[in-house]
């Protein structure tokens, strides 16, 4: 599966105009590359939370084929 699945939630979903998307995987692809592809921004906003394969991640990790990347604002449950 040579794609990366991308998901957006809450305010980010509305700003991006879609709940999910996908892009072709390439070696060396990082989370910031996916955000740049999706938004046109060079840097991931400071308050943004990122999950890879449904786990919170920090920094700008490199991705693997088939990974699911999600971008979302600070959480407000409970």
């Amino acid at each position: 599966m040579s794609i990366i699945k991308v998901k957006f939630f809450a305010r980010i979903r509305e700003e991006m105009g879609r709940a999910e998307d996908q892009l072709d995987f390439r070696h060396g692809l990082k989370v910031s590359d996916v955000w740049n592809w999706a938004s046109g921004d060079d840097e991931i906003p400071e308050a943004m939370l990122v999950a890879v394969n449904m786990e919170h991640v920090k920094g700008d990790p490199e991705l693997k084929e088939g990974d699911e990347v999600a971008f979302f604002p600070p959480v407000t449950g409970g």
Partner: peptide, 26 residues
Amino acid sequence: IEDLKHRAPFWKKEAVSEGERWVDRN
């Protein structure tokens, strides 16, 4: 409850008199 409030992926959108708004933080 504290971890849930600060890390579990839920997002609240409130309906107020002027319309709807996302809750920015707990």
